[in-house]
């Protein structure tokens, strides 16, 4: 299986008045055709930014650096016009928030017509209609509502319309940013089924951004855990869940399992701001396993197993850890207090 998408050392900044927000900071990923990569992490760690950045859709004032290789072509340096042609039929994006993503003055029909006419100009009126109604139908939107306006639909229905609007072009790579957040469990299952069909029938590569680790376990081949703009850990979904390596992954998994056992566990503290993130390992202020080396040096990505990547000093490389660096940092702090 060859990689449809290869992200190499991607950096994305937002310029703000208070400084630049480094929302994605040196991310590398691969997604093979017909496979699903789950992207998880707490709110604000840069998942949506990464998803949009792949399609080159960033607001004014944002900057990108690194490589996004789609079928071998770098999207970061591609001419805007060329990139525009890829968006839709090659690169699909389902946005996180469905309420505001449809033009209030246009009918659902207009949205589909415009999209299909843009990329498949040879389609007849009839074919456009058939394709649109078929895709909408699979999302549970009946043909009678084709000519209605966005405000006449509920949030969940708009979400499904947005998904249909992305799927109608059958993209080779689909970035789905929390596509099922505003849907009930039954519809959620249906949508996941459709996305699974898509990869089976059209060999679509899927980047599935979600908060729901259950979905990842069920629907994803691989999973990437994101923290403060970086990939903390990446590997086959089953292995990562069975045996998390990174302390953050462990904490994240623990916080969901505890919900089921009615004993609420949450990771102490909150994700850092991304203008001035913590030094060294960004997770060190919240990490139960923090060592002396952690705040001092940026962790280096290692492969503790052939198919897995981790960004944590617990897994070396030992040669880069200064002597005594593996001593727990907690003790050091107490020792300092005693000396004082």
């Amino acid at each position: 299986m060859s990689a449809v998408l290869e992200v190499r050392n991607l950096r994305l900044w937002y310029g703000t008045a208070r400084g630049s927000v480094r929302a994605v900071d040196g991310v590398s990923l691969e997604i093979a055709a017909g496979s699903v990569l789950g992207l998880v992490g707490e709110s604000g760690c840069g998942k949506s930014t990464l998803g949009r950045g792949i399609l080159g859709l960033l607001p004014e004032g944002a900057r990108a650096d690194g490589e996004v290789l789609y079928k071998g072509r770098n999207l970061v340096t591609m001419a805007p016009r060329e990139l525009r042609r890829l968006r839709g039929p090659d690169l699909g994006l389902i946005f996180q928030e469905p309420m505001t993503r449809l033009n209030p003055l246009l009918r659902i029909e207009d949205h589909f017509r415009e999209t299909l006419e843009q990329h498949e100009s040879k389609l007849t009126d009839d074919a456009i209609r058939r394709r649109s109604l078929d895709t909408l139908g699979r999302m549970g939107i009946p043909p009678t509502r084709f000519r209605q306006y966005p405000h006449e639909f509920s949030g969940g229905m708009r979400q499904r319309i947005m998904i249909a609007l992305a799927l109608v072009l059958r993209p080779s790579l689909l970035v789905a940013d929390e596509p099922t957040t505003s849907l009930d469990v039954i519809v959620e299952a249906q949508i996941l089924r459709i996305l699974a069909d898509l990869k089976a029938n059209f060999d679509t590569a899927l980047l599935l951004i979600t908060h729901n680790l259950g979905i990842v376990a069920e629907a994803c081949d691989r999973v990437a855990v994101m923290y403060a703009g970086q990939i903390a850990e990446e590997g086959p979904a089953r292995d990562v869940f069975a045996e998390p390596k990174h302390p953050y992954t462990r904490e994240l998994l623990r916080s969901t399992i505890s919900l089921e056992t009615t004993e609420l566990h949450s990771i102490p503290g909150a994700p850092p701001n991304l203008i001035t993130p913590p030094t060294g390992c960004r997770f060190h202020p919240r990490c139960p396993d923090v060592m002396r080396v952690c705040p001092a040096r940026d962790p280096i990505e290692t492969r503790p197993e052939p198919d897995r990547r981790v960004l944590c000093w617990l897994y070396g490389p030992d040669g880069d850890i200064p002597p005594g660096g593996t001593e727990p940092a907690e003790r050091e702090r107490i020792a300092l207090a005693e000396e004082a």
Partner: peptide, 14 residues
């Protein structure tokens, strides 16, 4: 700056 403008661009509308 509206969301639906960004969404239209994401669909590759010229």
């Amino acid at each position: 700056k509206e969301d639906y403008i960004e969404a239209a661009r994401a669909r590759g509308i010229n």
